[in-house]
Lab assay of single mutants.
Amino acid sequence: SSGGSSILDRAVIEHNLLSASKLYNNITFEELGALLEIPAAKAEKIASQMITEGRMNGFIDQIDGIVHFETR
Rank of each mutant, 00 (worst) to 15 (best):
I38K: 00
T71Y: 09
Q49Y: 06
G33T: 02
L8S: 11
A11Q: 12
M56T: 02
I66V: 14
Q49V: 07
A47F: 05
I63G: 08
I13Q: 04
D9W: 05
G58Y: 02
G58R: 01
S2E: 14
A34R: 14
V12T: 13
L36S: 02
L32S: 00
L23R: 10
Y24S: 03
E30M: 08
E30I: 13
Q62L: 14
S21E: 03
S2N: 13
S19E: 14
Q49D: 13
G33L: 02
L23F: 09
L17G: 01
R10L: 14
F59G: 03
A41D: 13
S1T: 13
T52K: 14
E53G: 06
N57R: 13
L35N: 02
L8C: 12
I63T: 10
E37R: 15
F69K: 00
E70R: 12
T71K: 13
F59A: 05
S6K: 10
A20D: 00
I60D: 00
K42N: 10
P39W: 04
F29N: 01
A11T: 10
E30T: 09
E70N: 13
R10E: 10
S1V: 12
D64W: 13
I60L: 05
S21L: 08
A47N: 00
A34N: 09
N16C: 12
L8F: 14
L18W: 05
L35C: 04
E14Y: 06
E53S: 09
F69Q: 01
N25F: 09
F59R: 13
G54Q: 05
I27H: 01
N25T: 14
S1E: 13
F29D: 00
I13L: 11
S19H: 14
E37H: 15
S48G: 09
I13Y: 07
H68L: 05
A41W: 15
G54F: 04
A43M: 04
E53D: 09
R10V: 13
A43S: 03
E53I: 05
I38Y: 02
T52H: 12
I63Y: 09
N57M: 13
L32G: 01
T71W: 10
A40F: 05
M56N: 01
L17A: 02
D9E: 10
M50D: 00
G4S: 12
P39I: 04
D61N: 13
V12F: 09
D61Y: 08
G65R: 12
S48C: 11
S48N: 09
E30V: 12
I66K: 12
T28Q: 02
A47K: 00
E31A: 13
T28E: 02
I63K: 13
G4F: 04
L8W: 09
A20S: 05
I66H: 06
K45G: 07
L23M: 11
H68F: 13
R10Q: 14
E31D: 10
S1H: 12
K42I: 15
Q49A: 09
S21Q: 04
E37M: 14
E37L: 10
I51S: 01
L36P: 00
N57W: 10
A20Q: 06
V67D: 00
A47P: 00
A41P: 06
G54H: 06
A11P: 06
V67R: 01
S21A: 10
S5D: 14
N26M: 15
R55C: 05
S5M: 08
M50L: 11
M50I: 03
H15T: 10
P39T: 12
N57C: 13
R10F: 11
